[in-house]
Design a protein around this nucleic acid. Structure first.
Lengths: 290, 290
DNA sequence: TCCAGCGCAAGGTGCGTACATTTCATTCCA
DNA sequence: TGGAATGAAATGTACGCACCTTGCGCTGGA
C-alpha cells in the first residue's frame, strides 16, 4: 500500500499502451509519462530507458521516441552515462528575458529602481488577466538599469489574491519571476508577447534618461502559469539599447535574437533613410549572417 | 557537365561522412543536407530516405535522425506515402515578407509608388554588400501601399553588375524578388535582418501620411544568394500598422508572427504607459495564447 | 583512511529488419 | 472515355541487436 500522504499510488502507475488502437504506441507512452510527470511521479529518480521499456512492454527505441520531445523541451535531462532526472522547472522565455539575459552575458550589472509597489485596481490590466474589473492587483513599476544607465521602464500587474506576498519582496536586485516562484510558488511557463514601436512621452523619456520624443519598443506580455494568466506586463525599452536581429536560411528557417545594443554615440537621424544610413549597424548585419 | 549558368555542380553534391571522426554520423549527414539545401539543391525533388541512405552510405534510421530537426523546423515536408519536398526555398522569408504576406491574406490590394529607380554609388550600401566604395548599385525607392494607404517606405540597393536588368522592370505591382528571379536569375534564399524602433523625420512622415514625429519600425535586411550579398534594404514601416507578436511555451518554444495591424482609430498615447494602456491590443494578446 | 582501479548501469550511436499506411501513377476493363 | 483496380514508392511505426562513452559506486590495496 502507499503512504497515506500521497493521494493514490495509481496516479503514478504506468498505463500499458494498446496495440493497434489507431494511435501509435510511442504516443501513448509519451502521454502516459507526461501524465505521471504532472502527477508528481519521478520526483526522486526517473526510471531508465530500459526500465521504462520493460515496464510498458515496448522496445527501448520506442521509449526513446516517446521521451525525445520531453527531453528537447527540457522536462527531462538525458546525458550519457548519467541517470535521467525530472527537471520540472523551465526558464521563462521571451523578448524581455532574452534581453536581460544578453545584458547579463556582457557582464553588465543589472539593477532596478522601484517606482511603485502597491495594490491597485486597473480595468485594463484586469481585462487582460481575465479578472473582474475591480479585482485587486499587485502593481510593480520599475526602471531597469544596466550598468546604472536606464534600459527599460517596466510595469507589471498580477492578481493580488495569489501574489500579495510579493509586496514584501525587494526588486532592486532580483527578477520578478524569481520572487514569484519563491514567495508564491508560481512558475511562469508560457504566454504571449506583442512588440510595438512607440514614441516616448516627456515623462517616460525623463525616467529613461533620453531626449523627449525618442523612439522606444513597447513590449506587452501576458504571462501564464498552468494555462492561467498571472502577469500583465508593459515594458518600454530604449530603442538605442535594444534591437531584434534575425538570420534566415532555407535549412534553419527564421532564427531570432534579441540584442542589448552597445551604448554607442550615434547621431540622431537627420533626414530620411537615404540621408545618412550609416548609423544603424549596417556592419553588424553582415556579422549576423550564418 | 553542368549547365554553364549554375556555378558548380559540386556545391550540391553529397559529402560522405567520416566514421569515427568524433562527430556522429547523423550530425555530419544533417550538416551536409543543410549545406546542400542552402546551396539550392533539391529545388525540384528531394531524394527519399532510402536514396539518401544509399547516397551517404548510412542506414535509413541514421538518415531519419539527421532529417528530423529539418522536418520539425519545416525546411522539409515529410508525409506518409508522399515524396518529400524542400519548402522555404522558393519563398524568401523574414519580417517584411511575412508582413506583406499577411497583408495579402487579409485581401487588401498591394501597390507601390516608385520614387526612384536608378543607378547610384552609395558608400554605406556598398560596404554592407561587401563591394568597393564606388561600386555602381541599382537603387529602388518605393512607398508601399496597402489598399492605397501608405504602409512602408522601402529602399533597396543591389549590385548593378548583376542586376542592371531590373531598370526595365515595373515595380508598381510586383515584388522585387520576383523581378530579381525573372530578370537576373537570382534567388534570395538567406540573409539577416535587424529591427529597430525609430522616429520618423518630417519628410518620411509626409511620404507615409502620418503625423511628423510618429514612431516606426526600421527593418534593415541583407539578402544573400548562394552566400553572396545581393541586396541591402532599409524599410520604414508605420508602427500603427505593424507589430510583432509571439507566444511561447515549454513544448513549442518561441513562435513569432508578424502582423499587419488593422488601421484602427487609436488615440495617441497621452502620458506614460500607465495613463491609458487600453489602446495597445491587450485583448489580442489573450487571443495570441496557444 | 584514502584513493586508484574496476565494473556496472545508463544513455548515445548505428545498423538491420519487418510491416503498415498512404499517395500517386499506371493499367485494365466496362 | 471514364473509373476502378493495381502496384510501386515513400514515409511511419516497431523491434531487435551491437558497440561505445560516460558517470558513479564499490572494492581492494597502499
Amino acid at each position: 500500500m502507499s503512504t497515506p500522504a500521497s493521494p493514490s499510488r495509481r496516479d503514478q502507475d504506468a498505463v500499458l499502451p494498446e496495440r493497434g488502437s489507431g494511435t501509435p504506441v510511442w504516443a501513448q507512452v509519451q502521454a502516459d509519462v507526461r501524465r505521471r510527470l504532472d502527477a508528481g511521479a519521478f520526483a526522486d529518480g526517473v526510471p531508465g530507458e530500459n526500465a521504462l521499456a520493460e515496464e510498458y512492454g515496448v522496445s527501448r527505441q520506442t521509449v526513446r521516441q516517446a521521451l525525445r520531445p520531453l527531453r528537447e523541451a527540457g522536462a527531462l535531462t538525458a546525458e550519457r552515462g548519467r541517470t535521467s532526472r525530472a527537471v520540472g522547472i523551465t526558464q521563462p522565455m521571451g523578448a524581455l528575458y532574452s534581453l536581460f539575459a544578453s545584458v547579463r552575458a556582457t557582464g553588465m550589472t543589472q539593477r532596478s529602481r522601484v517606482l511603485a509597489l502597491d495594490v491597485v485596481t486597473d480595468p485594463t490590466a484586469s481585462a487582460a488577466l481575465g479578472l473582474p474589473t475591480d479585482a485587486e492587483l499587485v502593481h510593480l513599476r520599475r526602471v531597469r538599469l544596466a550598468d546604472d544607465v536606464p534600459l527599460a521602464l517596466d510595469e507589471a500587474w498580477l492578481p493580488a489574491e495569489r501574489t500579495r506576498a510579493l509586496l514584501q519582496a525587494d526588486f532592486t536586485e532580483t527578477a520578478l519571476y524569481d520572487e514569484l516562484a519563491r514567495h508564491c510558488g508560481i512558475h511562469v511557463r508560457g504566454g504571449a508577447e506583442h512588440l510595438h514601436a512607440v514614441v516616448l512621452t516627456p515623462a517616460e523619456a525623463a525616467l529613461l534618461g533620453v531626449a523627449p520624443g525618442s523612439a522606444a519598443f513597447l513590449v506587452e506580455r501576458l504571462g501564464c502559469s498552468e494555462g492561467t494568466p498571472v502577469e500583465h506586463r508593459r515594458s518600454l525599452v530604449r530603442a538605442d539599447r535594444f534591437s531584434v536581429s534575425a538570420h534566415f536560411a532555407p535549412s534553419s528557417g527564421y532564427q531570432f535574437q534579441f540584442d542589448a545594443d552597445p551604448l554607442a554615440d550615434r547621431p540622431d537621424r537627420p533626414d530620411g533613410p537615404a540621408a545618412d544610413p550609416a548609423h544603424h549597424h549596417a556592419p553588424t548585419l553582415r556579422e549576423a549572417l550564418p
